[in-house]
Every structure is written in C-alpha cells, then in structure tokens.
Design a protein around this nucleic acid. Sequence first.
DNA 1: TGTACATCAGTGAACGCGCGTTCACTGATGTAC
DNA 2: TGTACATCAGTGAACGCGCGTTCACTGATGTAC
Lengths: 247, 247
Amino acid sequence: VFLARNGKTDPVSAPRSARDRVRQELTREILEVARAQLARDGAAALSLRSIARELEMSPSALYRYFSSRDDLLSALILEAYGSLADCAEEAAAAARRLGGVGAWPAVSRAVRAWAIAHPHEWALVFGSPVPGYEAPEATVIPYARIAAALVGPLAAGGPEGQLNTTAAGLLRPDTLAAAVQPVAEALLPGLPTAVVARALGGWAALIGIISLEVFGHWRNTVLDPGSLFDQVMADQARALGLSGEAG
Amino acid sequence: VFLARNGKTDPVSAPRSARDRVRQELTREILEVARAQLARDGAAALSLRSIARELEMSPSALYRYFSSRDDLLSALILEAYGSLADCAEEAAAAARRLGGVGAWPAVSRAVRAWAIAHPHEWALVFGSPVPGYEAPEATVIPYARIAAALVGPLAAGGPEGQLNTTAAGLLRPDTLAAAVQPVAEALLPGLPTAVVARALGGWAALIGIISLEVFGHWRNTVLDPGSLFDQVMADQARALGLSGEAG
DNA sequence: TGTACATCAGTGAACGCGCGTTCACTGATGTAC
DNA sequence: TGTACATCAGTGAACGCGCGTTCACTGATGTAC
C-alpha cells in the first residue's frame, strides 16, 4: 500500500545514511501538513498541490514519498485510528489505576473528547465512507483496540463482579449468538450472548451520540451535550451492570 | 433558498398555462435524475453537467430551474428527509393500528430498512456534513417528524402505561433537565427528565447502530446485523418500559 | 584519498479532466389590446 | 381573430478553476573500487 519509505530497509529501522534521515523527516513533515489540512478542511479538500504549496516544493516531488493521493489519505486515516485508539487505551489504563468508577464512563468520555477535538478525523473514522476510496485493511487493529478499551473490563466481570448476565428478553438466542460470534470470541470470550449484544448496543449508542453531536444534530435541541452524554453512558453502564450502585 | 419554480404564483398552486405545466414536469424530471445520481454515486459526485447530459440538454439550461448546484442539493436533502419521515410515520401508524408490540420496534426497523435501501441519502442526513455546505433550515420539520414517530408513543405512557419513569441513577438532575429542555417541551411534554434522557439514548443507539451497519463497520464483525439490531432495539424499548413483558 | 558510476530528490512544464457558472443569443409561448 | 410586444426556455461558446499525475531533466548524495 505505502511506497517504501526507506528504500529497501525495514521501514522501522534506524536510518542509515543522512539521506535516509532527511527522507524520514520530510515524510513526517508532509504528514504533519496533511494532517493539519485534514483537520481544517476535511478529507475531501485534501490536495497534494496545496500540501506542496505549503511546503514550498513542487507537487510532483510528493510522489517521492507517497505514490498517490489515496496513499497519503490512507496514512492519515491510519494515524487517526491510532490516535483515537491511544486515547481510549490511556483512559482505560488511568481508570484501572484509579479503580472505582470503572472504565466505561472514563473511556467513553475520552472518546467523545477526542471526537470534539478532531471532528474531521472522527468523520473519517465513523462518518460516511469517502466514495470511491477503500480504507486500508490495517484499520482493523486500532479499531479493535478502541472497542477493547471500552468493553474489555466486561471480560473481567465488571468492577465488583456484578456484570448483568441475565438473558431475559433475548429474541432468537441462537441466531443472535451466531450473528455476534466474531465479537464474542475476540473481545468477550466466555460471556453470554446477552452481554455481547448489550455491549454492542452500548458501542452503537456511544458512536451514535458522539456523531449526532459532532455532526451538528443537537443544534437547538440538546443545549448541553456533555450532560446528556454522561447520563446516557451511565444508563448504558448500568444496563451492563457496570455501575457503582447496585445494578 | 429555491428559485421560484412557478414564476410569481404560489409554488403549490395548480399550473395555469401549458408552459407552467411543462416547467413543473421538467423540474420533477431533473430532481428524479439527480436523485438517481445521488443514490448511485453519493452527494459529492452530484454534478449539474452530468444531469444535463442525462437529460440531453445544455448545462446552462438547468439554471432556469435551480439557481445553483447547492440549491439543487438542498432540494434533494429535503426530499430525503421527507422520504425518511414519511416512512417512519407510516410504520408508526401501522403499529398503532395493529396495536400490541408497540411503535418502537416497528419504527426503528422501518428506519433501518430505509437506510439500507438509501445508503447515500442516509449519509446525507446522518453522516458527516458536506464541508462548505449548510443544510437548509427546513430540515428541522421532517427531522422532528422522524423523532416524533419513534418517541411519540412515550408521551402516551407506553402500550400499557408501563413507562419506566424511575429516576434512579440520574446524575445532576437539574443540569440535565436544562440540557434537554427543548426536546422535553416539543416532543415529550410532561414526562420526567429521566425518560427524556433515556429516549435520547435510544435515539442515539438507533442512529449509531444503523450508521455502523450502513457505513460498513460491521464487516467481519457482526455477521447478521438484523438480529443484533432487533435485540439492541428490544433492549432499548425495555429500558424505556415499552416492552410487552413486564419492565 | 580519489575517481567513476549508480541512486535518488526535486524541478518545471505539460496533459487532460470535469466542473460551476456567465452571457449574448434565438425562437417559441403567452398576453394585452 | 389578429397584431405587437413581453416573457421565458433553452443553446452554445467561453471563462477560469484546481486538481492528480507523468515525464524528461538537473544536480546532489551515496557507494564501490
């Protein structure tokens, strides 16, 4: 997918020559400018020519670093995924250290804060797909990291082992189990299907409430999105049995 | 916003002359072709020139009907909102006639079906905003119609008056009440803040789960989105106290 | 250490694309007397 | 019913835009002997 960034050497290995060092630095600079443009104007407006202009080099020079516009965009998308995943994992780790209130509210708030700080990147990750462009396969990994940061604590049975495992109201249990099998296996092994479904519901609510806010759908409707967010996420956590109070 | 479509007359009134009739028909035809292109390639690819090509007329001729590309796009957006609102209301009405299971599952399934049938329109309504383009104010009305179709039954206290009105676990009740005040007033008058928050949570879950599916985020993860959808929406209805079984 | 060659970075001009929009125009349709 | 004028629909050429990408090139950096 990417043009080899370091000639024939391992892309992560230390640069051997001065030339390699300069190349790495310029690559970083290009990505930085591109990221800034993406944050300012969105993915659709990302243009190699304008990046070249900002870097005061010719447009064709960029082709030494990225083989096409799509290639550059892929790099940016991966960065966005990675940045969001880092952010979610940090929040999860902090919540683990502090104990108490649990990871769900902490991680969800961190994700929301990231989205508000990076609306165009959020759109790139969870918004409408860019037509004619296919996201790189490698996004699977950071995507899973985000979900795991949010939902991982469930695997431990919740803060005080009070996870809600009741399966009351399960429509078509077998079909549902098959439907969510990959998630159950990868993220929540050993937990009942009902929990997996509730976790996915919470995931959908998280993505939905953030998207509604970031994409401007609360205008004149929800005056304080933060309060509503906290409440809705607390409700979700309670449904899962993750709240501090008795479920 | 729109170019006057009927000269000086009331835009909805019957056409007076043959010229007016032809004009109305061509306007309709333009919108039809544009809608088809939108459905096929998405909003970004919508082009006056290609519409003109398909209609075998000159690009400039379209300016007799729409004052700009944005004007045409606005018309399409309004149509999309209206179509989705119609669909939601029909499902709500059918559920009312049939009684029993309640409007929530019926309406949410109808909305999902519409989204799957019109993914690009869904993206236009709930996806990332088109940069540099502002949606017309008039979308407020169909937007409210959709929400009302889903959430309206709550105002009646649920199918058997078993609406869950417990306010346990309300963080910062006063702040929250102020935050959601416009929704409470317009959509759910007289109901406790806790219910309003839960309803908005359900709304977010609905939009989120549909967007995740339509935008391709379930790939290799949720094998049968329909089953998961039904389950998650049933959980939401139960949280609200709308299920057939005891809450 | 010095020379000969290979590799690579960056340039500048050019190609071709499709777009939205404007404008002066022709010819048809409608209207007033 | 017929004529004179106004309104409107649609044309075709043109403008200017910015884009991604290619290509032959120059000059600098690295490498092998």
